[in-house]
């Protein structure tokens, strides 16, 4: 592929700076379309390097309570696949560099129509997809067609992915590898850094792709610790909780961007040798 993607640019630039990427997750349309738009547009300025935007689904089997509720808030306020793609398109009018990865479940994409979805997503400026319930056994469904549209298919590797299975998981992966830090749902228990470091090192022996770590990362301290050995740190449920706990849309925006700034500062400093305490 001669095409150089936004994700490749992003990771190359961060490598130069010797720091990991901060990846934020928010559900599109949560808590409502306008607030969600404000949240999204403010993320790069607050320090996010890569945006994961959730496509809400009524039955999010791999998500914990925080993201389940976010999906319901968004759907109850009328969010659709088309509106999510439109959010990306409008974001791209202002920001042509920050990668956006859409994350969700297969059914809403399947019902939208795979080819139509990929065409519209590529046109809107989507860089990658994370689809939780499409393992490599179903690569012909979406992963392979996505490559035709130059949309990366980001694969999840998990604590249960053993050496025998890993090659299959990596085979058609692109963009980056998302290492799920614990067996469980989003927003669950915190991973232990020692085990994680070993797991990430193990993955590196099999792939050149950048490795992001997510699930259960909530604080600046955790982000710094994990960012020391991973190429990206994903924070989702903690940000979504800020929306849940806010009394007004303004407060939601302020809280989310506030937490993002803290996290961003932390990942920017985490590999600085003079601050071993932070790491």
């Amino acid at each position: 592929m001669t095409h150089t993607s936004r994700l490749e640019h992003c990771f190359a630039a961060l490598k130069q700076q010797n720091r990991p990427a901060l990846v934020s997750y928010l559900t599109a349309g949560d808590p409502d379309a306008e607030t969600s738009r404000r949240l999204l547009h403010g993320l790069p300025k607050a320090g996010v390097d890569i945006i994961e935007l959730g496509m809400p689904f009524s039955d999010p089997m791999a998500d914990g309570p925080a993201i389940q509720k976010a999906a319901l808030r968004a759907l109850n306020n009328g969010q659709t696949q088309a509106k999510t793609l439109e959010m990306v398109r409008r974001f791209r009018e202002e920001d042509s560099t920050t990668p956006i990865v859409l994350m969700g479940y297969y059914n809403p994409i399947y019902c939208y129509g795979v080819e139509r979805f990929l065409t519209d997503a590529a046109k809107a400026g989507v860089d990658g997809l994370i689809v939780v319930d499409l393992p490599p056994e179903h690569d012909e469904e979406l992963c392979q067609p996505a490559a035709q549209h130059n949309i990366d298919f980001i694969r999840l590797a998990t604590p249960t992915t053993d050496a025998k299975r890993l090659p299959k998981v990596l085979a058609n992966a692109s963009g980056f590898i998302y290492y799920v830090s614990v067996a469980g749902v989003t927003g669950g228990s915190a991973p232990t850094p020692e085990r994680l470091e070993g797991a990430v090192a193990g993955l590196r022996e099999h792939t050149e792709l950048p490795i992001a770590v997510g699930f259960g990362i909530r604080t600046a301290e955790q982000a710094a610790t994990i960012g020391r050995f991973s190429d990206a740190v994903v924070v989702g449920s903690a940000l979504v909780d800020c929306i849940e706990n806010a009394n007004t849309p303004d407060e939601a925006v302020e809280r989310v961007h506030g937490l993002v700034s803290e996290l961003a500062e932390s990942v920017r400093a985490c590999r600085e040798v003079n601050e071993p305490q932070v790491c």
């Binding site: 089997m61 319930d133 499409l134 179903h138 590797a157 604590p159 992915t161 299975r165 799920v180």
Partner: peptide, 12 residues
């Protein structure tokens, strides 16, 4: 049919 599940469950 098929096996449309999260990667964590696939080995199982």
């Amino acid at each position: 049919g098929g096996r449309f599940v999260a990667e964590t469950l696939m080995p199982l």
